[in-house]
C-alpha cells in the first residue's frame, strides 16, 4: 500500500499542473482515487468572498478521475479525458482544502467511465460532482472484459 502511494506521489510530481495546484494523494487503488488540494488565495474566483474558482475544482476532479482510471485492475498504460460534465452545488468555504473522491465504476475495451465528487470540510454537502468518459489504453496482450 505504501508502495502505491509512493508511485502515486511520483505520478503527481510528474504532472506540472497538479504540482502547481498543490495536489496530494490521500489514497489510491482498485479504480478509486482520493486527492486533496489546499486552499490558496491565487485560485480564488470571486475576490469579494474569497471563494475558489470552479476551474481549480474542475482541475482537481479531472486529475482524481484520471488517477482512478490508471489504478483500475485492468492496469491501463495511459488515459485521456474524452468528456467531463461538472455540476456545481455550492460555493466552497474559503480557507478550507478541497478533496476529490473519484471512482472508475465501469470499463469497456477502450473506454473508462468515472464519477467524482468534491468536498470541503463538510463531507455531507459536496461542493461539486462530475461524471466523465476517459480513453483507456490497455497493456499489449491484455484481455478485454
Amino acid at each position: 500500500m505504501t508502495d502505491i502511494i509512493q508511485i502515486a506521489r511520483q505520478f503527481i510530481e510528474a504532472i506540472p499542473h497538479a504540482r502547481a495546484l498543490g495536489m496530494e494523494f490521500e489514497s489510491l487503488g482498485d479504480g478509486k482515487a482520493v486527492i486533496s488540494m489546499p486552499y490558496d488565495p491565487r485560485f480564488v474566483g470571486d475576490p469579494a468572498t474569497g471563494v475558489l474558482h470552479g476551474g481549480a475544482v474542475s482541475a482537481l476532479m479531472d486529475t482524481a478521475s484520471g488517477a482512478a482510471v490508471m489504478c483500475h485492475p485492468t492496469a491501463p498504460v495511459s488515459t485521456a479525458t474524452l468528456d467531463l460534465r461538472i455540476d456545481y452545488f455550492r460555493a466552497a468555504t474559503p480557507g478550507q482544502a478541497i478533496t476529490a473522491r473519484a471512482e472508475c465504476y465501469h470499463v469497456t475495451r477502450s473506454v473508462a467511465f468515472v464519477r467524482v465528487t468534491a468536498s470541503d470540510d463538510d463531507d455531507a454537502r459536496p461542493v461539486a460532482a462530475a461524471t466523465g468518459a476517459f480513453t483507456l489504453d490497455r497493456p499489449k496482450g491484455g484481455n478485454a472484459r
Binding site: P16, H17, I86
Partner: peptide
C-alpha cells in the same frame, strides 16, 4: 510549463482546458 497535464506527450492538463 505549469499548465501541462501529461508530460510524456506533452499535453495541456484537461482541468486547465476546462477552466480556460
Amino acid at each position: 510549463e505549469k499548465l501541462i497535464g501529461n508530460p510524456a506527450l506533452p499535453a495541456l492538463h484537461g482541468g486547465v482546458t476546462a477552466a480556460f
